[in-house]
Design a protein around this nucleic acid. Structure first.
Lengths: 153, 153
DNA sequence: CCGGAATAGTTGAAGCTTCAACTTTGTTCC
DNA sequence: GGAACAAAGTTGAAGCTTCAACTATTCCGG
């Protein structure tokens, strides 16, 4: 076991700012979605991905990948969304192991309402307090991180 | 209710890269800490804050604020850490409502071991795939976000 | 100095996530 | 063609977080 290579002072400050900031930011967005629309951010992400898919439906595995969730978690969450009437599930005819999740009309309208407030909050708390070039840097950096992290998962 | 001001295409890409990337990154770090040292990242953060405090102890409320956790969550988590022998709690003599959490020696040594691997992972998955100027941008941006979010909480 | 409001922290239940085991269906290859 | 293996999802239990209610103590205005 090698000697630990600690982060430099500035690196550590930047890293901690990110961890604290992202935890708090995602927390507030989650609360806000939950209290005003009864959705968690995880549920919201699922509705968004479905709304953008052809016929507003996706296979469970793909939906899980796009929403960065485990399959198990998606199963449970979809069950909840289904019982709220926002999503419907149907088995895939060509591959009988498979299941499609599809956004219902009610789900779509719930998403329309929720996304208005959500985007407003994202602007208020994130975009509007970040310099445009810093926002680009964030996009660049996290795109690379996603690629890196996915090699390890 | 006003018209929704959507994010621009690039803004949306940057925002989504951040959300996906941070979820996946924090996820992997959490798994890794959990499997190799039996600690969640939330627990790890608590140990870190305590280790840096004078006498390695802090009041519960301050610890909660520093670790970006609710008091309730901290109570539960501290109870678990206490039962693992990593933390000890004692009431404050000057304010009998108050409680100090203190890192035990065992907690300190657990942290020493865990932080080695954790920092290595943070380098591998975050620092080393990010351009230095992008890292600075992240630090700057999230420092501002913390300030903004804390006005709303 | 007393009664009401505020602060510190805990608790138990409900809700969500993770984990491991399981069922069903598809794929491979001999 | 069928045995072994892999892939898609689901399930229930255990673990962690959130929520609301609660106790105990301190602060503050009159």
């Amino acid at each position: 076991m090698s000697e630990t290579r600690w982060l430099s002072g500035p690196q550590q400050r930047d890293w901690r700012a990110f961890v604290d900031g992202s935890v708090r930011l995602l927390d507030v967005l989650d609360q806000s979605l939950k209290t005003t629309h009864g959705l968690s951010m995880a549920e919201y992400e699922i509705l968004v991905r479905l709304s953008e898919a052809p016929e507003r439906k996706l296979r469970m595995a793909q939906l899980a990948a796009e929403a960065s969730q485990s399959r198990s978690r998606l199963s449970h969450t979809c069950a909840r969304l289904e019982s709220k009437g926002l999503v419907r599930r149907e088995t895939c005819s060509s591959d009988k192991r498979g299941v499609f999740a599809q956004l219902t009309d009610e789900g779509f309208h719930t998403l329309e309402r929720a996304s208005h407030d959500h985007v407003t909050a994202v602007r208020d708390l994130f975009v509007d307090v970040t310099e445009p070039e810093d926002l680009e840097a964030i996009g660049r950096a996290f795109t690379a991180i996603i690629k890196r992290v996915d090699t390890v998962r």
